[in-house]
């Protein structure tokens, strides 16, 4: 397989350079654009395997760039946002971004996100079993095993865990999880999500207080992580 091509759209030269060096050193082919206009032209001329899109571009609002790209571009988009702008991140995820990173981010985080969204875009639908570390989720028999031991989960707990695990590595927003598992009437009932996540952690995490599989993305949602 060829090296995946990644298009960086960011107006800050320092960030572009850092990303280019990082991506090149990790087996990707980076290309970069410094404005929304340039980025969209480059993406249209030669669609990349992934786009890293900064939301704070000088020539156009990042959300509108995202919506325009999503009209025809099907590969993953990861957005880069300034620290702690949760509403902005949620809007971007609703507008079709696959994941996000908030600046300043750690390089390890960046690479993990890229790997995870690229894996999702090639992985096949309808897998029968998902295996992560010592955790095994069998989608046909709806059973979960940890270290080979069967874990007892209630119906809701199982649905929630399976939903997060199927999107392995990707953040799912509170609203999305509540709507999908409990229904549209529950999107503001975040207390259910908190309680069920805590319950699942008690069953699948080695130390439920220091979770390594079901991670909280503060103010945004939850993420199932199978790699370190």
């Amino acid at each position: 397989m060829n090296k995946p091509e990644i298009l960086i759209i960011d107006d800050e030269q320092q960030i572009r350079k850092l990303l280019e060096i990082t991506l090149e050193g990790n087996g990707y082919t980076p290309r970069s654009a410094s404005s929304a206009k340039e980025g969209m032209i480059m993406a249209a001329n030669h669609p990349p395997d992934l786009i890293l899109l900064d939301l704070g571009l000088p020539d156009e609002n990042g959300q509108s760039v995202l919506r325009k790209l999503r009209k025809w571009y099907v590969n993953p988009i990861i957005i880069l946002s300034v620290q702690k702008k949760e509403e902005e991140i949620i809007t971007a995820l609703d507008n079709g971004a696959n994941d996000y990173l908030s600046k300043p981010f750690r390089i390890g985080e960046l690479l993990a996100r890229i790997r995870s969204v690229l894996r999702q875009s090639v992985s096949e639908e309808g897998e029968a079993a998902l295996k992560f570390r010592d955790l095994e989720i069998d989608l046909t028999s709806r059973s979960v095993r940890k270290n080979g031991q069967l874990i007892k989960l209630t119906g809701t707990e199982y649905s929630l865990l399976a939903l997060l695990a199927r999107s392995n590595g990707k953040v799912l927003t509170h609203h999305y999880l509540l709507r999908t598992i409990w229904g549209p009437g529950y999107i503001d009932q975040s207390q259910y999500l908190r309680v069920y996540i805590a319950q699942i952690r008690k069953k699948i995490e080695d130390d439920p207080n220091r979770p390594e599989i079901l991670l909280t993305e503060s103010g945004v949602g939850y993420r199932f992580v199978s790699e370190n």
Partner: peptide, 15 residues
């Protein structure tokens, strides 16, 4: 205002 799991928050901040 939103429902918040204080135990989770404390462990997160400590980490």
């Amino acid at each position: 205002q939103d429902w918040c799991d204080i135990v989770e928050l404390v462990y997160e901040v400590v980490k």
